[in-house]
Amino acid sequence: MSRRKTLLIVYHSMTDGTRQMAEAARAGASADTGVEVRLLHAAQAGATDVLAAEGFIFATPENLAAISGQLKDFFDRSYYAVLDHVNGRPYACLICAGSDGHNAARQIERIATGWRLRPVAEPLIVCTHAQTPEAILATKSIRSEELQRCRSLGEAMAQGMELGVF
């Protein structure tokens, strides 16, 4: 009997928004019992976790029009150890943004292209419209309809992996 495929969700969250999004994706993916789901904070994830997974969801806040430093650190620590070992594996990304999110999504896309990962969904960007220092630093509460989008992405990712679609 072959082992279940593993979906690795790596996230960083400073104000709780991205964590909520990542947990919603995990809940959706976990509904499919054919795929093991691992949710790891970027500080705890590394190359061994990447190599052990058949698919990925990367989740980050957008900080100063970029991915978070913690997620960048994860990629820096893992990049060369997994290069040419994860070619063709599927990935998606979740971005919690104050106003835009597209530059953070582009950064993840560039890194994933280097790893030769295959995107299986458009970046899911949730905009909180936080524009003042107080709003940016405040604990976020992501709306239920946005969390449902994250859950649906996780579910679709797990189903696609289990069925061998990607």
Rank of each mutant, 00 (worst) to 15 (best):
Q44M: 11
I57C: 03
A92R: 02
V50L: 08
R151G: 06
A52G: 08
D100V: 11
N87S: 14
A47L: 05
A66W: 08
H102E: 12
P123A: 02
A31R: 12
A130H: 05
S78A: 11
P133F: 10
E109T: 13
S152E: 13
F74T: 02
R77S: 09
K140S: 06
A53M: 03
T60A: 06
A92H: 08
S13F: 06
P61Q: 02
L153H: 01
A29Y: 03
A24V: 06
H129A: 11
H41A: 12
L147H: 05
D32N: 14
K5A: 10
G114N: 04
Q70R: 12
E23A: 09
P61F: 00
W115R: 02
I9F: 04
A81D: 14
S99C: 10
L40D: 09
Q159A: 12
R19L: 14
C127T: 14
L137F: 13
M21S: 07
G28M: 01
L71M: 09
N103S: 15
P119R: 10
I108S: 04
A43M: 13
T128Y: 00
S144E: 13
E145A: 12
A47D: 07
A92T: 08
A97C: 06
L147N: 04
A27E: 12
I108N: 03
S68Q: 07
L117V: 06
Q131T: 15
E62N: 02
R149N: 04
H102C: 10
M1Y: 14
I67Y: 02
H102G: 12
E54M: 05
E146Q: 12
A31W: 08
A158P: 03
A158W: 02
V50R: 00
S30P: 04
G46D: 05
V86G: 00
N103F: 14
V82Q: 04
M1P: 14
A29E: 02
T48V: 13
E54L: 06
E145D: 13
D32M: 06
N87H: 15
A97F: 05
A156C: 10
I125N: 00
N63T: 13
A158D: 05
E145Y: 10
E109A: 15
G88P: 06
A29S: 10
H102V: 11
P119G: 07
G17K: 00
E62K: 00
G98W: 03
A81K: 14
F166S: 09
V35G: 01
L40Y: 10
T15W: 14
G160D: 08
R151S: 10
I67H: 01
K72R: 14
N63P: 07
L8I: 07
R89F: 06
A47M: 04
I95Q: 00
T18G: 02
A104E: 04
Y80V: 07
S13H: 04
D49K: 03
Q148Y: 08
N63M: 13
L137P: 07
F56C: 02
Q70P: 10
Q159M: 12
M1H: 15
